[in-house]
Design a binder for these strands. Structure first.
Lengths: 193, 193
DNA sequence: AAATGTACTTGATCTAGATCAAGTGCATTT
DNA sequence: AAATGCACTTGATCTAGATCAAGTACATTT
């Protein structure tokens, strides 16, 4: 259950057996079936979760009922509404699973205590967040700078696994375009070849 | 020269006088005149910089010559191309100053050594990056979910200082809309009142 | 196996925002 | 003080992508 987790941690920091054992105690495993919610808007995000396997998504729903994909997370990724998690404010996010998933969950109290007891986790999260900023910044540049077709081809180039694994209508939403436009963009690209 | 800097640090972590003295040694002060470059595309981003005062911007320039604002940074903010800084790869970013600025610069070697010598800086940057993720995620949601008018009003609500301090054409670029559209949006909003 | 639902495609139309173009008012340079 | 150059505005037109609508193909439920 902690296999992917510790593999992922050890890619960024070195952990002793003692530290690993201690870290484990802060997490609660949880299984989530396809389509089940982990968080619904209006609730507080009480857990920051690591995905051992499976696939989750987070999204907002606007006044017209349209979903806007914020993030996808599969094996080795973290998921949550960090703002709500840290501040205790109500979340506007929905989080549910696209595929059956196994998760490791930590509360805010656990998160904070773990940092004090296992200081190397400060380093781990510093590096994790650092990388996250880089990818969010890229997505942002993509979003403000390019046409629908370019957004898609750049995403496909930077993140081919995402294209294979995520349904097309969710990719469209992730890019901020309609499913119809994405369908036409793809048709267009396949004709070009 | 380090006033804003240590005030900012102490908002997030506690530092002894010794730690402060040691931290200082890793930074080089620099003054940057209005319109001067700190980084040009094609160069490697050798410094991560803290803005003591003044105002910087980072942006990409696309094939058509259009600028796309990535970030603004004034007193108390950090600026750089984190990806290029950490990886040593060439940057696509340009960074220059909108207002005369005083900066504190650290190299990658300095950054890494500082983390080892003053471990509480891991915590500082973890918290800094954490907050940065929250604001980038908001900007991203704004970008994929809303109309030009909504993008502007939401930015103005979340970040009124930005509206006051940044020229309108740069705000337009930051939002991913044209200056003409932003001008019309503002006219429209002032008529509504 | 039938029925229902959902993802995706394709076509027709509409519209928000881009583009192009000209004009105004400041600020900076000479 | 004149001249040059931006930032911003306003108008006219164009277009990429949204919306609306219908049809097809799987997948899931009953």
């Amino acid at each position: 259950m902690f296999q992917v987790f510790f593999t992922h941690l050890q890619e960024k920091v070195v952990l002793s057996a003692n530290e690993q054992a201690l870290i484990k105690t802060y997490f609660t495993p949880k299984k989530l079936r396809k389509k089940q919610y982990l968080l619904q808007e209006g609730d507080v995000c009480r857990y920051f979760v690591f995905v051992e396997n499976g696939l989750l998504r987070s999204y907002n729903v606007d006044e017209k009922g349209n979903e806007h994909m914020i993030q996808f997370a599969w094996e080795g990724w973290w998921m949550g509404d960090i703002y709500s998690f840290l501040s205790g404010e109500l979340s506007t996010y929905n989080i549910d699973s696209i595929e059956d998933a196994e998760l490791l969950m930590i509360t805010l109290a656990g998160f904070e205590e773990m940092m004090l007891k296992v200081p190397v986790m400060e380093r781990y999260f510093r590096i994790l967040f650092q990388n996250n900023i880089i990818s969010k910044e890229r997505r942002l540049i993509n979003s403000i700078s390019y046409s629908a077709e370019e957004k898609y081809t750049r995403l496909a180039a930077a993140n081919p696994q995402l294209i294979q694994r995520i349904p097309q209508n969710l990719i469209a939403s992730y890019l901020g375009i309609t499913p119809e436009t994405l369908s036409r963009v793809r048709k267009n690209l396949s004709n070009k070849k």
